[in-house]
């Protein structure tokens, strides 16, 4: 069963027909041709498909596109302005925070979504005082970035990059 939806992806309005069974991830990839969100596990277990949905980081493999009519989505591609990379992206390059690069667009989106959560004062399980302000320690970064698996093992560089990119 098909349905027509409209999405705003990386600033561009897109109208597309989707099979109701199509995940948001597959709609972005197969329907719109976005390549930044990746299919790493397809079951919400790796974070490679992370995008910013209405400003918040979400996985896209476990949600149907049809339920997101009207959504505003930013992928890692949309974070850059042409050749001009987002500071977080530059930090990932400078710190060599990836190797194969497959999890990277999801890591970058997750990092920015996570920083917005920290900015809003949201605690994590690594936060000692749930009611106090949140300090972005390395332990906080690690815990908050743990939803993005990296098989190449770039974690320590990712933490460095996120710390730099947060400045």
């Amino acid at each position: 069963m098909d349905s027509e939806i409209q999405l705003r992806v990386d600033g561009r309005r897109k109208r597309l027909r989707v099979d109701t069974r199509m995940t948001l991830l597959d709609a972005l990839r197969d329907g719109i041709g976005a390549t930044a969100p990746k299919t790493g596990c397809d079951h919400g277990q790796c974070g490679s498909c992370t995008v910013l949905l209405d400003g918040r980081r979400v996985i896209t493999c476990l949600t149907f596109a049809v339920a997101h009519d009207g959504a505003d989505i930013t992928t890692a591609e949309g974070l850059a302005d042409g050749e001009w990379l987002h500071p977080m992206q530059r930090a990932f390059i400078e710190r060599d925070a990836f190797q194969c690069g497959f999890c990277t667009p999801g890591q970058v989106c997750s990092a920015l979504g996570m920083l917005a959560e920290v900015e809003a004062g949201h605690p994590s399980v690594a936060t000692d005082d749930l009611t106090g302000p949140v300090e972005l320690t390395d332990e906080e970064i690690r815990e908050r970035m743990s939803g993005n698996l990296c098989r190449c093992g770039a974690y320590v560089n990712i933490v460095d990059a996120v710390r730099d990119g947060a400045r």
Binding site: G47, R57, V58, I59, L62, S110, M114, S124, S146, G147
Partner: peptide, 8 residues
């Protein structure tokens, strides 16, 4: 879960 799962 993870931050991006808890957001959904």
């Amino acid at each position: 879960a993870s931050g991006q799962v808890r957001n959904l």
